[in-house]
Design a protein around this nucleic acid. Structure first.
Length: 567
RNA sequence: CGGGGUGUAGCGCAGUGGCUAGCGCGCAUGGUUUGGGACCAUGAGGUCGGUGGUUCAAAUCCACUCACCCCGACCA
């Protein structure tokens, strides 16, 4: 490719709205351009990178036994009613109305379509297992697109769906996919961490995410460097310390005046106990129902866990008005004596005794509250948020925290979707059983952005060879000097003839401009031809990742370059 | 949806009521340059996000509205 003909120019300054490193660099390099919030065009260079990522993914999916197909983006809304997931996807589901006033959804994912498809074709266990995948555009009306390509509303995603006869088959498909994912990340030069995850709106049981650890990641990962336990904070479990009160026995309830103590910290220090000796009350609205949540004072509520135990789709904190409307006194609320409200407790309230709780009247708390002596709960579960410093549930070592970009997510779906769509098969004994499903997604654009986030310097992007838009940047200097241009042209032809991907900078620009552009674009190997090098019948070769250059003889250059690229 | 911010040339920005809206980069033409974002000259490029209002006069003041960004909520 001749640089002079390339569509998309490099920019010295990134647009003001670009905040994340990958967003800035990709825009400055002329690889992507924003059209609207969370909607981007890929320019030729960016598209080349994306297609390379796509091909690597495709190769690994095929190697794992996947079969590629193409599914519709326009989907009958009825499919979503049939699966019941229109509720869990909620407003993220784009919908439109056709001329016959029929509602269609723009596919945010394709479990519905593929299960509906598979149920019409698969009738026997002999046809299983089946691994089907697609690489195509998905649309989600995200509440807040952000970070350039990191979170968008229109994106290209590889999604593979596995169909197995039983749980053991699913386990095998799941294992294969995890292996394929690790192959993909390794070919992309992207270190990832596999973490336990919540399955969210997709649904299902076991689920893992693949995280690229970086400070600007939007997810938080809790991990144990001793035993290797790692989980998204949404899912992370931890060992809750057992708190022993000074008194060994359960003491009688005692009301105490606690003026102007609204927060747990104020209450604890006023009464003279640690926060772990108190109980905290938090109020939510879950699908329109008021919920009273109680948790030990030193812990916080994990809203994802709470959502899961409540099996609700919409969850938010209750407003002050709703709290007082429920007959509660904010800041002094108490689980003791509540009537007619759903009470959810974290199991930490059983790991201690003689707690301080609100008295449900302003300015007063109660000492020595004990469960279940003094109050009852409707649901007791782990709904606590893990934090760095807590103990690992598996080995007891101290947990740590890091931020990450989610570049892959795999789910064991089970049979809930196949049952809804009547995707049953006959097993070897002639018995009808639902197909056991899994799904495995990778966002290509996010992957591209994650590579940049994780591989760049102050000059620009540093592409790994496997996805670089071009492998070689051919850079003649002083084009008006004798023999420079003809020699460069000849080299360009030779390299192309040998199948080397070369970006030929035929522009009449100063050396500084060219060098800065190639660094920004992140092309791995730079070949510089100047009167100086030409005098010795040589050309200078320099890797993007290295400071030092070396001279290569001009004759047999293509072979030399090939050697360098393969080595 | 709550909080904060920004909309002036392709990009970055200046311009707090005054008549012809500027600067840098980029772009075009000519010339001089050439190993890390050269220089000179000339030039093209603007419904100042939109609508309505106040005023003799609005990029500038007021109201409404739209778009985009950040934090939170939410979300693979």
């Amino acid at each position: 490719m001749r640089f002079s003909k390339l569509f998309g120019k490099t920019l010295r300054q990134a647009p003001a709205e670009a905040e994340s490193v990958s967003h800035q660099l990709l825009v400055r390099a002329g690889m992507i351009a924003q059209e609207a919030a969370g909607i981007y065009s890929y320019l030729p260079l960016g598209w080349r990178v994306l297609r390379k990522i796509e091909n690597i993914i495709r190769e690994e999916m095929d190697k794992a036994g996947g079969q590629e197909l193409m599914l519709p983006i326009l989907q009958p809304f009825e499919l979503w009613q049939q699966s019941g997931r229109h509720g869990s996807f909620g407003k993220s589901l784009f919908t439109l109305t056709d001329r016959k006033e029929h509602t269609l959804a723009l596919g945010p994912t394709h479990e519905e379509v593929i299960t509906d498809l598979v149920h019409r074709y698969v009738q026997s266990y002999r046809e299983l297992p089946l691994l089907l995948y697609q690489i195509q555009v998905k649309l989600r009306d995200e509440p807040r697109p952000r970070g350039g390509l990191l979170r968008v509303r229109e994106f290209i995603m590889k999604d593979l769906y596995s169909f197995d006869a039983d749980e053991a088959g699913l386990d095998e498909s799941y294992r294969k996919m995890c292996q394929a994912y690790n192959n993909i990340y390794s070919r992309l030069g992207l270190p990832t961490l596999m973490v336990e995850a919540d399955s969210g709106a997709i649904g299902g049981k076991e689920s893992h995410e693949f995280m690229v650890l970086t400070e600007d990641g939007e997810d938080e990962v809790i991990y144990c460097s001793n035993c290797g336990y790692a989980a998204n904070v949404e899912k992370a479990q931890f060992a809750k310390a057992v708190i022993l009160s000074e008194a060994k026995n359960l003491l009688p309830l005692q009301e105490i005046a606690t003026p102007e103590t609204e927060t747990i910290e104020q209450v604890a220090s006023f009464v003279g106990v640690p926060t772990s000796q108190t109980l905290k009350a938090v109020f939510y609205f879950a699908d329109g129902e008021f919920v009273f949540v109680v948790i030990r004072g030193d812990l916080d509520v994990n809203e994802t866990k709470l959502r899961n135990v409540l099996k609700c789709s919409e969850l938010r904190l209750a407003t002050e008005g709703e709290v007082s409307g429920a007959g509660l006194v904010a800041g002094f609320a108490s689980p003791i004596g509540v009537k007619g409200l759903k009470v959810v407790a974290d199991d930490s309230i059983t790991l201690g005794s003689n707690f301080v709780v609100g008295a449900n009247k302003p300015g007063y708390h109660l000492r020595n509250a004990n469960f279940p002596r003094d109050f009852q709960v409707d649901i007791m579960a782990d709904i606590a948020l893990a934090r760095a410093g807590a103990g690992c549930l598996k080995c007891g070592a101290e947990l740590a925290s890091a931020r990450g970009i989610e570049v892959g997510h795999v789910f064991k779906l089970g049979t809930f979707i196949s049952e809804k769509f009547g995707a049953y098969f006959l097993d070897s004994e002639g018995k009808s059983r639902p197909i056991v499903m899994g799904c495995y997604g990778i966002g290509l654009g996010r992957l591209l952005a994650a590579i940049v986030e994780q591989s760049h310097d102050d000059k620009g992007v540093i592409w790994p060879l496997s996805v670089a838009p071009y492998h070689v940047y051919l850079c003649p200097l002083q084009l008006d000097k004798p023999a420079i241009l003809p020699t460069a042209e000849k080299i360009y032809q030779q390299l192309q003839k040998e199948g080397i991907e070369v970006l030929y900078d035929d522009r009449d620009e100063s050396p500084g401009v060219k060098f800065n552009d190639v660094d920004l674009l992140g092309i791995p190997l730079r070949l510089t031809l100047s009167p100086r090098t030409l005098q010795g019948q040589s050309i200078e070769a320099k890797w993007r990742t290295e400071k030092k250059a070396r001279l290569l003889p001009l004759d047999n250059l293509a072979a030399e370059v090939k050697q360098l690229l393969s080595g």
